[in-house]
Structures are given as structure tokens and as C-alpha cells.
Write a protein that binds this DNA or RNA. Structure first.
Length: 208
DNA sequence: TGCCAGGCCCTCTTTAGGGCCTT
């Protein structure tokens, strides 16, 4: 039985692909229980090599900042304890799940919960958004954002706020009081044209 | 130092190509 909490997480990394040798340099996460932030986690980690200027400019994380940071192994062990068996959420989860799996595999740990993706859900629920980048969606939904995008904790916090807004909008549009994680998992795989029908059928089913 | 991915999703599709997202 999976825990009811969900951990919303975001990695900053040296690049796009752990299979090509890229490593995590920062993890940020918030733990939600019943829609309320109950805990958070943020840490820089030293990937064991210098990061390039693109990543320094993109994230604002510099080689000077990473030099005294603890190793990826130390940080990720603490993060594995933090997430426990919680379900997981990220904006473009395929990216963050690859890095999470890769970093945990290096320390003989593994992901226990199930991942879902706010990008896939937002493409289905906010079909009129200009695009589905995290920052665009935060603006699109008028969510207050006081901080720097492309830092792990801030992006995780913004993803969490977007997620709660998504759940609110699904509840409001389809008159669904409780949205189980299982419904979200199905929603994220449903073709866009069939999303309204899925939610309508679900609403009918739980009321009967 | 230089190299650099992968999953989703649409369409002029499925014997494929290219844009979107993440760093």
C-alpha cells in the first residue's frame, strides 16, 4: 500500500542525460499531504566535476557554490529517506525520474512510489495554454511566483502550486470531490480528446 | 575537450518526422 503523501521534486543537473554521464547538482522537493505542504528538502550536491557555463547561467548555480557541497551519494541517501514510499510528481517527470533512478542506483537505493507528471496532466487540462513550460503555466494560472525559476526548490514549489491548481480545476469543472492518484495516472495517459469523457464517466461512477 | 537524450504527441502517421518539455 502506497503512502498518501506526494513528493513534488525538481532536479538541477549538469545536462540532459544521465546515460551520457550527466549528474544531479541540486535537488529540491516539497512533501504534500492533503494538499498542504508538510515538509521540504533542498540541497546542492557536488557532481565530482566542473559544470559548464551554460548550466551556470541557466541555473545560477556556480562551480564555486558546488565546490564545498556534499557528494551526490550523501545528498541522495538523505533524499531517499525523505521521499520514503511517497508517490512522486515532477514537471516533465520523464526527465526527473531518469535522474532520480540513476542517482539512487549509484547508492543501491530505489524509488518505491509511483511517478506522475504535471506536464502531461496540464497538456490535457489546460489545452488552451500558450505552451506548457512551468513558468508559462504559472503565469497562465496567475499563481504568485516570488523567486528564481531553474532553482530546484523554487521549481518544486511552483510545480506543487500548479499541481494543486490543476486538482482544483478538475474538481470544479467535473464536480469531483476526491481525485485519487489512480485517476491522475489514467488521466496522464488518456488521449486529449477523451479526457473530458474520462472525467465525466468517473464523476458519474462515484455518484452512483 | 567534445560529445550529448528520451518520452510524449501531432500529423501531410503507423515502412516517419519533427516539435515540445526537462538541464
Amino acid at each position: 500500500m502506497l503512502a498518501s503523501s506526494i513528493v513534488v521534486l525538481d532536479f538541477e543537473t549538469t545536462g540532459l542525460s544521465p546515460d551520457q554521464g550527466d549528474r544531479a547538482i541540486e535537488i529540491g522537493a516539497v512533501k504534500l499531504e492533503n494538499g498542504i505542504e508538510v515538509d521540504k528538502f533542498q540541497a546542492l550536491m557536488n557532481p565530482g566535476r566542473r559544470i559548464n557555463s551554460f548550466i551556470e547561467n541557466y541555473t545560477g548555480i556556480t562551480n564555486r557554490m558546488l565546490a564545498p557541497a556534499p557528494s551526490c551519494a550523501k545528498v541522495m541517501a538523505e533524499f531517499a529517506d525523505f521521499i520514503g514510499d511517497s508517490n512522486l510528481l515532477a514537471h516533465n517527470a520523464s526527465f526527473d525520474s531518469r535522474f532520480l533512478n540513476a542517482e539512487l542506483a549509484r547508492i543501491d537505493r530505489e524509488v518505491l512510489g509511483e511517478f506522475t507528471c504535471s506536464l502531461l496532466v496540464s497538456r490535457r487540462i489546460y489545452q488552451d495554454a500558450p505552451n506548457h513550460k512551468l513558468g508559462t503555466l504559472i503565469n497562465y494560472k496567475n499563481i504568485a511566483a516570488d523567486g528564481s525559476f531553474h532553482r530546484a526548490l523554487f521549481d518544486a514549489q511552483m510545480t506543487a502550486k500548479l499541481w494543486l491548481k490543476l486538482l482544483d480545476d478538475i474538481r470544479e469543472r467535473h464536480d469531483i470531490e476526491e481525485i485519487p492518484f489512480s485517476l491522475i495516472k489514467r488521466l496522464a495517459k488518456t488521449p486529449k480528446a477523451q479526457v473530458a469523457k474520462l472525467l465525466s464517466n468517473y464523476a458519474t461512477k462515484i455518484r452512483s
